[in-house]
Simulated scan of single mutants.
Amino acid sequence: MSYVYKTRGTCSTLIEVELEGNVVKYVKFTGGCNGNLKAIPKLVEGLTVEQVEEKIGGISCNGRPTSCGDQLAKACRAALEASQS
C-alpha cells in the first residue's frame, strides 16, 4: 500500500511510504537535506512500523520538536492505520 504524508515542521514537505503489511518497503522524501533523506530510507526499509517508531520517532532537529525521521515515523503509523481502515 502506497501512502503520501504531508510533513509538519520540517524542511521536507512530503513523504511517500509503501508498506507490505506492517513492513516498510519504500520511502521517498520530497524536499529537505539531500544526504539525510537518501540515508534514512536505506536504514528503515525492511523494518516494521513499530521498529521505525522505536528507532527514529521523537527525534528533534535544530530546536524543533520534530525532524524528518520523526515525521517518517508518523507517516509510517498513518499509512498502517489507513491500510487497516
Rank of each mutant, 00 (worst) to 15 (best):
E53R: 14
T48V: 11
K74P: 00
C61N: 06
M1E: 01
C11M: 08
P41A: 01
K25R: 15
K42E: 04
E50L: 11
N34R: 12
E18W: 03
E81V: 15
L43W: 10
A39Y: 09
Q51T: 11
T13P: 05
A39H: 11
C61Y: 14
V4E: 05
T48K: 09
Y5K: 01
A73H: 11
A39G: 09
E81D: 14
E20C: 10
F29A: 02
V49P: 14
T66N: 06
Q51M: 09
S60M: 08
I59M: 13
A75P: 03
I40D: 00
Q51V: 03
G46R: 14
L72M: 09
Y26A: 10
C33V: 07
R77F: 06
A39V: 05
K74Y: 12
C11W: 13
V27L: 02
A73G: 07
R64A: 14
Q71C: 04
S60Y: 10
G46V: 05
R77I: 07
V44H: 11
A79C: 04
N36K: 08
T10Y: 07
S83P: 06
Q84W: 08
A39S: 13
E18I: 03
I56A: 04
G21D: 06
C11D: 11
V49K: 11
K42P: 01
K55A: 13
E18M: 03
S83K: 08
Y3H: 13
E18S: 14
G32C: 10
N22R: 11
Y5E: 02
P41G: 07
V27I: 09
K55M: 12
P41C: 08
S85L: 10
K42C: 03
E50H: 13
G9W: 13
T30I: 07
L72T: 02
L37V: 15
G32T: 10
I56P: 08
I40G: 09
V52I: 10
L47M: 15
G32V: 09
P65Y: 05
K6N: 14
C11I: 00
A79N: 01
V52C: 11
N62C: 12
Y26N: 14
D70F: 14
N36L: 04
Y3E: 00
G32D: 00
A78C: 07
G69M: 04
S67D: 00
C33F: 06
V24M: 08
G69E: 01
V27M: 00
L47G: 04
G31V: 06
R77C: 04
E16W: 05
E20W: 02
C61S: 10
E16A: 09
K28I: 03
G69R: 00
I40N: 00
I56L: 13
G57A: 07
R64K: 15
